[in-house]
Amino acid sequence: MSKNEIDYIDINKIMAMLPHRYPFLLVDRVEELTPGDSIKAYKNVTMNEPFFQGHFPGLPVMPGVLIVEALAQAGGIIVLSTDGLDVTDKVFLFTGIDKVKFRRPVVPGDKLVLDVVKIRSKMGIWKMKCVATVDGEIAVQGEVSAAIVDKGAL
């Protein structure tokens, strides 16, 4: 591991970085981080997730859009960890979702591994390749793009 890599970020540090809170914080732990470049994180999926009440009764499946959101939140950690980037009074918002494929359902008991790698960043717009896996099998893959915008602009 190079000196620029971080090998562990706990939930308290994640909450200090991301604005999301229960029930919408979808990253539990960061296992590896190369600031500004890549991340390996995970979300432990439990039956206690509020979305399982209605998706689907008797057949709990994590909504695909929430898996994409988990990947985007992991991508947000990449951006927020970038050296020299001032994100004071800023927020990171989706600008696009491309080439997304849903390959397998994610259910209670799964450990959803989130791998995100920066493709490019220019003028506050970031594009990232994302793959979410469970037990080594791809659950979701695709690309997300997002922009850093002033909170006051919302």
Rank of each mutant, 00 (worst) to 15 (best):
D115E: 11
S145C: 10
P63N: 12
A153T: 12
G75V: 01
W126D: 02
E32L: 07
P35W: 04
I148L: 03
I148Y: 00
A72W: 14
I39F: 04
Q53V: 10
D7M: 11
V87N: 06
V68L: 09
K13C: 09
Q141Y: 05
V106I: 10
I97H: 06
W126E: 06
K43P: 03
K111F: 12
L154Q: 09
K151M: 12
I9N: 06
D86E: 10
L80Q: 15
P57G: 08
T133L: 03
K43A: 13
I11L: 09
H55E: 12
L112D: 08
V117P: 02
T34R: 09
P19F: 10
I119E: 07
F51Q: 10
P57W: 14
V116Q: 02
F52L: 13
G142F: 00
S145K: 05
D110R: 10
I39W: 09
G109H: 10
E31P: 06
T82M: 00
D28E: 14
E5C: 05
R103N: 00
I9E: 11
K99I: 14
R103E: 00
S121Q: 14
T34P: 09
K118C: 07
D37K: 08
N44T: 08
A16N: 11
A132Y: 01
R21F: 14
S81A: 12
H20C: 06
A153F: 13
L71C: 11
V27H: 06
K129W: 07
V79H: 03
E31R: 03
G142E: 01
A146Y: 02
E137V: 15
V140Q: 01
M15Q: 15
S81F: 15
G54E: 06
M128V: 02
F56N: 06
I67P: 00
